[in-house]
Design a protein around this nucleic acid. Structure first.
Lengths: 336, 336
DNA sequence: AGGTATTATGATAACGTTATCATATCAATG
DNA sequence: CATTGATATGATAACGTTATCATAATACCT
């Protein structure tokens, strides 16, 4: 493969002059630039980003570490990250941790090796056991979607407390007295924040004492299990709050299996919307997070930190959710 | 940041010996290995993958160029790619082309610069205008999901002809005589193959003459538009074949807007299934592609090519689809 | 004309690692 | 004991680029 030296020979200049043409930096006379550019064409030259990165200490690569790209929320977020990165000339490395701290650690190590200019991380745990990896290193990190302890970084996330609170207020306003809350994993901030927000709404409505709480995970099976448990309670709940999209879908499946209709027999609200393009008949009342925008803002913060040499203080961007009321929350509860 | 030379100094050996310890290559005495490893720990050493790649000509990075990661089919495929890559010690660069050849070209150029060891490509067009990028270069390419002309590469894809054919046979067997086919973009092999397969089934059933064909794109809006046009035909079709998941969802929405029920008023079959975890009530009769496996097999072929030095002949892996019959295709047609 | 700033180009070294070749030690073999 | 093969370590150069410093040529000013 042709190198900058081949070009230099061909164009009759020094390698550094070729470098100037490629990078559009420094002074180059017009006719020299033409000659070099012609050499580039003729030799079908492709710059070696490894050598560039090694010398210049910039790789123009960002990396995204998330739990699972097949979760539509993260898919959309990832697309936002990729678009924003690409628009600024950066490429994107993507890694799935499956909420496992060991996988997260493995990936973060590799990313440090690759000298990615920055890392966008959806941390697997609130108390990260991997915070040490970033100490004494200058790779900036932006935390997405969740809070985390111990890592000095900018944060971009949706307002889980507020979103869950709104859903709780909605249910209370409809007259529900016995509500079941299906949570995600403890130790994950988004899950805990949703619990906090929803609980607050229940408390304000004076129905916290009858709140049924089930702890699970952000997956469908967990949603089914928690729902089946909730239905065994007596008296059984008249409404369900699911802490994310997968739990919600699991819950709906469990309800259907039992022959229960939503919202006629039991109402339902959930966190996370599904993309419009993926759903035939939008049905769930949800707190929709601005997934795409979380990704875009994350890249913005990261690049700003990369540009400015002086260490600016860390920022926390909390984006509001959108309450979308659809069929699943039903009308006012008539019987009690 | 500590380098291999710092480690060497600390451990009292030559840099190359440190390299041997890190790469677990060559001979190193046990006590020396220990000393080096201790130095690694103490200095919190992270190898520089740029320098490694520059010298060794291997980056342990693969790249995935697809049209849009927010399409669940590609999301699943991407996950398959990432898992397989990761299992073999490779990281993954991901790029979205939005079916645009110019974006595709821009990304492929960048990937060549980054010296990714291999590229997995979902080509935007059947006749690729970017084939020239790979000539005289040794970066191996695997084409996923589609056929493409001009690029010498392994191919992994689902059997679009067969899948569409099966769906056509199904509809014909149910007694439909007037069927509408909503296709994807012309010039994209998966779309064209589906048209071929479906047409074949129509022909064999002797109902090709009444087949209504609408050409569109793999997006929801296109599905809605084509459906609205199809409904204006007289007599109107009794069944619809949608060439992908987004078209299908658009079609369902258009039908719903017109107050038509599926399958009672009109039957429907489609290509691509939606992940079980994302759908509350699976309803569409589909030809489901093994998306995850397409990704895994793609990486397998790519790595095999990387391992073997001799140029082996290119392979085409065509994975079968699964016909999943659900409600939307309805029972036998009673009226005509 | 002399001095200063701007434009233009290059020489050299360095980024951090590993490929290649060379050499030294040691144990085993007949 | 000389020979061989395995074990162990290192010196040197190279991968392809750019940071840094130096120098030359030209334009601009008084």
């Amino acid at each position: 493969m042709a190198t900058i030296i081949d070009l230099a020979t061909k164009a009759g200049v020094a390698p550094i002059t070729v470098s100037r043409v490629i990078n559009n930096s420094g002074y180059v006379r017009e006719d020299v630039r033409k000659r070099v550019q012609q050499a580039i064409e003729e030799l079908d030259y492709v710059p070696n980003a490894l050598a560039r990165g090694l010398r210049s200490k910039r790789t123009f690569t960002l990396s995204l570490v998330l739990t699972d790209i097949t979760n539509p929320f993260f898919t959309t977020m990832a697309r936002g990250v990729e678009d924003a990165a690409s628009a600024n000339g950066y490429m994107l490395l993507v890694c799935n941790t499956d909420e496992r701290e060991d996988k997260e650690r493995m990936y973060l190590r590799l990313l440090l090796q690759k000298r990615a200019d920055g890392i966008l991380l959806v941390p697997s745990r609130k108390r990260s056991g991997n915070a040490d990896l970033f100490r004494n290193r200058h790779t900036p990190v932006v935390i997405l979607d969740r809070r985390v302890e111990g890592i000095s970084a900018d944060v971009v996330r949706g307002d889980s407390v507020q979103g869950a609170y709104q859903l709780g207020v909605l249910l209370a306003g409809l007259g529900h007295k016995r509500v079941a809350m299906l949570t995600g994993p403890s130790g994950v901030s988004s899950s805990e924040d949703r619990e906090i927000g929803f609980r607050k709404a229940m408390k304000e409505a004076g129905i916290e004492s009858t709140l049924l709480v089930y702890n699970g995970n952000f997956v469908q099976e967990s949603g089914m299990e928690m729902t089946n448990k909730a239905l065994q309670a007596s008296p059984s709940p008249t409404a369900i709050f699911a802490a994310n999209n997968f739990i919600a879908i699991g819950a709906l499946k469990a309800l259907q299996a039992k022959g229960l209709r939503v919202p006629e027999d039991i109402a339902m609200v959930a966190f996370d919307d599904l993309p419009e393009s993926m759903v035939t008949f939008p049905f769930l009342t949800v707190a929709a997070q601005p997934a795409y925008d979380i990704g875009v803002q994350g890249v913005r913060l990261l690049l700003e930190r990369l540009e400015s040499e002086e260490p600016t203080s860390f920022r926390e961007v909390i984006l509001p959710n959108e309450l979308i009321v659809r069929k699943s929350s039903g009308g006012a509860v008539k019987y009690q």
